[in-house]
């Protein structure tokens, strides 16, 4: 079977400050890593391949240095990788990103199964997977907890709903977003690192796309606009109490009584 996994390079840390004067993001360093949730998607693909055979490709979108995460995927056992990268994609929001990746996917192959992590640690929206599925015209299931059964033309999965767990069968081609801990991701192998170090990573740019309408990509293709960014608000109505522990506990108990919690 043909499996595609979508992966992303994210900042190594979520520590971020806003310059209080300029209101501008201060990013420390350029430390980056693979989105940790994507490791579970890659592991799922590897497990399915062990069962049924086939090939696993990964696709990512980002600057040229995002090749690093594709190399990392190779070290885990992924067969092929492609990077969708072009200046024209700059400033893409969820919609433009999803459309761009879906155009990239169309350049690669017809896949039976596309796997995504639950979300990324920098965008945190969990929206790109379902939006891509829409653009590719295939059904999707999100929040997949486990794989129940893999058949020739379909897959049975367990999905996590608010109050229920549902087992559903979905026909190929389809897209799944998998929960963290669906499988324990394997560590990158040093042997594979050596054997894949010269493996080519396919670069896909704007001019390779079927749809060359520039207004669908990057900032122009993004319906949402960030008006401003600001630090989270600080509650101004607050009191600070100091004293001996006996004084403090009495003060807390009184306040709790006054607020009718005791």
């Amino acid at each position: 079977m043909k499996i595609l996994v979508c992966i992303k390079q994210v900042p190594g840390t979520s520590k971020i400050d806003v310059d209080p004067v300029t209101g501008v993001l201060k990013r420390d360093g350029v430390d980056s890593k693979m989105n940790p949730y994507d490791l579970f998607a890659i592991e799922t693909a590897l497990k399915l391949k062990e069962q049924k055979g086939g090939t696993i490709q990964v696709i990512s979108m980002g600057p040229p240095q995002a090749k690093e995460v594709i190399r990392e995927a190779f070290m885990m056992g992924v067969d092929e990788g492609a990077l969708v990268s072009d200046r024209k994609f700059a400033g893409a929001d969820v919609l433009a990103t999803s459309y761009t990746i879906s155009q990239g996917v169309r350049q690669l192959d017809d896949f039976d199964l596309i796997l995504c992590g639950k979300q990324t640690t920098d965008g945190d929206t969990a929206q790109v997977g379902p939006e891509m599925a829409e653009y590719l015209g295939i059904p999707h299931i999100a929040n997949v907890l486990s794989i129940v059964d893999l058949k020739d033309t379909s897959i049975q999965v367990e999905m996590d709903m608010a109050n229920t767990i549902e087992v559903a069968e979905i026909q190929f081609p389809c897209l799944l977003t998998v929960e963290k801990d669906i499988f324990q991701p394997r560590l990158p192998s040093y042997k594979k690192k050596l054997s894949t170090k010269d493996r080519e990573i396919r670069m896909i740019t704007f001019k390779d796309f079927q749809d060359n309408n520039e207004t669908r990509y990057g900032l122009s293709g993004s319906p949402t606009q960030v008006e401003r960014i600001f630090p989270p608000s600080v509650n101004s109505d607050r009191e600070t109490w100091t004293g001996t522990s006996a004084e403090l506990s009495a003060q807390i108990a009184d306040k709790l009584k006054q607020l009718k919690f005791v």
């Binding site: 806003v18 945190d124 008006e227």
Partner: peptide, 13 residues
């Protein structure tokens, strides 16, 4: 909240 809640983003469409 964006970037792990370290920043708030105001967004319009």
């Amino acid at each position: 909240p964006a970037f792990g809640g370290n920043i708030m983003a105001q967004i319009i469409c």
